[in-house]
């Protein structure tokens, strides 16, 4: 039976250290299995969040060998086991205990984004009609499982702590889903520019790289939103042309 060593962050809100655990590795195991096995064998008080073990609940986010990943979707055969595998909590949020972080900042941010505001109903009975091809574009954004891995890897939050000024890639995706929805008539560009700090994103695409749902965050959500902000705020010629067209 092969064995592997896992260096897991143990500790509370203030101090913590990496503690090594050795455990058996069998075929098809994922990192979350190893963590559970370690809990059962040698560390019953090891705290970790998980729910579905299918990459759908977004609870088991962690940093495995330094990269933000879902523990339940990271197979052990994809990481080198000849040296200790580090498992740490997400860095962009305050640690609570062991692998658990306090992600409540994200829920506060979500409340600040203008809600969905549909146009007047299309039919007498208060219903709407829309074409599938028009909702296709936002469908991608709805795959988000709110694992917050993108928030964790984004250097604006992770390294520069702009949590007060920048909503992060997850919520740019969320805003894109609302803003590009065919029925929505709300305008969020002013907010995007000022309150949501879209200009802080420097399109370095780390969020896209770590998204377990493979949402093309930067290219399909953030850049199109940046372009909409340009329309409103940085394109005087375009504004002028629009003015004349309206006449």
């Amino acid at each position: 039976m092969t064995q592997a060593t896992f260096s897991i962050r143990r500790g509370g809100r203030e101090t913590a250290e990496l503690v090594d655990y050795r455990t058996d590795v069998t075929e098809g195991m994922v990192v979350l299995d190893a963590v559970h096995q370690i809990q059962a064998e040698s560390a019953p008080d090891l705290a970790c969040r998980w729910n579905c073990k299918a990459g759908k609940c977004g609870s088991c986010s962690a940093e495995i060998n330094g990269m933000p990943k879902l523990m339940c979707m990271t197979r052990l055969d994809t990481i080198p086991l000849d040296e200790p595998v580090t498992i740490e909590p997400m860095r962009a949020f305050p640690p609570v205990k062991d692998l658990i972080t306090d992600v409540s900042w994200n829920y506060e941010v979500k409340k600040r984004i203008k809600k969905f505001k549909p146009r007047k109903p299309d039919a007498e009975d208060g219903t709407w009609r829309m074409m599938q091809e028009d909702v296709d574009r936002v469908q991608e954004f709805r795959k988000c499982i709110e694992c917050f891995l993108c928030q964790d890897v984004c250097h604006v939050l992770r390294d520069h702590e702009k949590h007060a000024e920048f909503i992060g890639p997850r919520f740019l995706v969320y805003t894109a889903a609302l803003e590009m929805h065919p029925l929505d008539v709300e305008n969020r560009t002013q907010d995007l520019k000022d309150a949501h700090g879209i200009g802080y994103c420097n399109i370095t695409k780390c969020c896209t790289k770590v998204c377990p749902e493979h949402i093309t965050i930067t290219d399909n959500a953030i850049i199109p939103l940046k372009e909409r902000v340009v329309d409103e705020h940085y394109d005087p010629i375009g504004k002028l042309v629009k003015l004349f067209r309206k006449r």
Binding site: F93, P94, S104, R158, E161, A164
Partner: peptide
């Protein structure tokens, strides 16, 4: 808001 701002090393 300030209460849950994040402080990272």
């Amino acid at each position: 808001m300030a209460s849950n701002l994040v402080s990272i090393q």
